[in-house]
Amino acid sequence: MSRETRHESPARAMSAAVAAARKAGAILREQARAGFGIDRKTSIVNLVTDADRAAEQAIVDHLLASFPTDGVLAEERGQDGRRESGCRWIIDPLDGTTNFAHGFPFYSISIALEREGVCTLGVVLDPIREELFTAEEGQGAWLNGRAIRVSSINTLDDALLTTGFAYDIRETADNNLDHFSRFALRAQGIRRTGSAALDLCYVAAGRLDGYWEVKLSPWDSAAGSVVLKEAGGRITHFNGSPYSIYGKDLVASNGPLHPAMLQVLAERP
């Protein structure tokens, strides 16, 4: 099949991504019930489980069976696939591994489709709550088939924010604690969930009003960024420049809060 007709049906790509996410979700639920092995990657706080690997394999197998000339960028295996089509699937099979390993029921599967360097489709599945967030470029954002929209909160005093911390928090001063302390004194509240994909989707759905984080990887934000933008949100880097999933920092908001969040992030101790 030629490059021009490879993804001629966006509905086909969405259907494949949703089916792959649901397969992975079933694996995560089963392994959470039956038990799993845990290894450490680069540090004592950077975990990988048997469930990460099994879910990722199921996603990749399903997507490449449907689109064999596509590429893959996944958290555990890195780059894979042929990428002859100009399309690449960006996959986090278990966003929230530490939560999963501790039996804390807040984690997700994240799948995005990148076409010629732009993420145009996003699927994020919370397998515990059975909440499926989906979005396609120009088609809006959806939660279990219902349209979602960002909040209208316009001051930090009224805002509920979320953030996260990098795995090297113990080894570097660039660990987000300074930003956290400043936002804690400005916002109505701050949450730390442990799943960047769900953080972005919760801002998209109006459950949260803003989110910032440092030292992210492409698979952390690829799908959620599509959902957020299609729900009317705004996402940039800390300096206000257009967001790229290959950058290392992120600030996302409902839009009205964005200038105030950028201002806080620009402050120096």
Results as ranks from 00 to 15, higher is better:
167 Y>I: 12
235 I>L: 06
229 K>W: 08
160 L>G: 12
218 P>T: 11
163 T>R: 03
204 A>K: 08
204 A>L: 02
226 V>Q: 02
218 P>E: 10
167 Y>C: 10
210 G>H: 07
174 D>L: 04
222 A>E: 04
184 A>W: 08
188 Q>I: 05
228 L>W: 05
167 Y>Q: 12
194 G>F: 01
168 D>F: 03
237 H>E: 07
171 E>A: 14
234 R>L: 10
236 T>W: 01
189 G>T: 13
186 R>P: 07
193 T>S: 09
185 L>F: 12
161 L>R: 07
234 R>D: 09
200 L>C: 00
172 T>Q: 01
165 F>C: 00
206 G>E: 09
230 E>V: 06
203 V>Y: 03
200 L>T: 00
175 N>I: 00
186 R>N: 03
179 H>S: 11
173 A>V: 15
171 E>C: 08
161 L>I: 11
208 L>K: 04
180 F>C: 05
203 V>T: 12
201 C>F: 04
175 N>K: 04
223 A>P: 03
222 A>D: 10
178 D>L: 10
224 G>T: 01
199 D>C: 10
184 A>S: 15
173 A>H: 14
174 D>P: 00
182 R>M: 00
162 T>S: 11
232 G>Q: 07
191 R>M: 13
219 W>D: 14
219 W>E: 15
164 G>R: 13
160 L>W: 15
185 L>C: 11
200 L>M: 02
235 I>A: 09
187 A>K: 03
210 G>K: 00
219 W>V: 13
181 S>N: 02
193 T>Y: 02
220 D>C: 13
216 L>S: 04
220 D>P: 08
198 L>H: 02
165 F>I: 07
177 L>Q: 13
198 L>G: 05
224 G>C: 04
182 R>S: 06
197 A>C: 12
195 S>I: 00
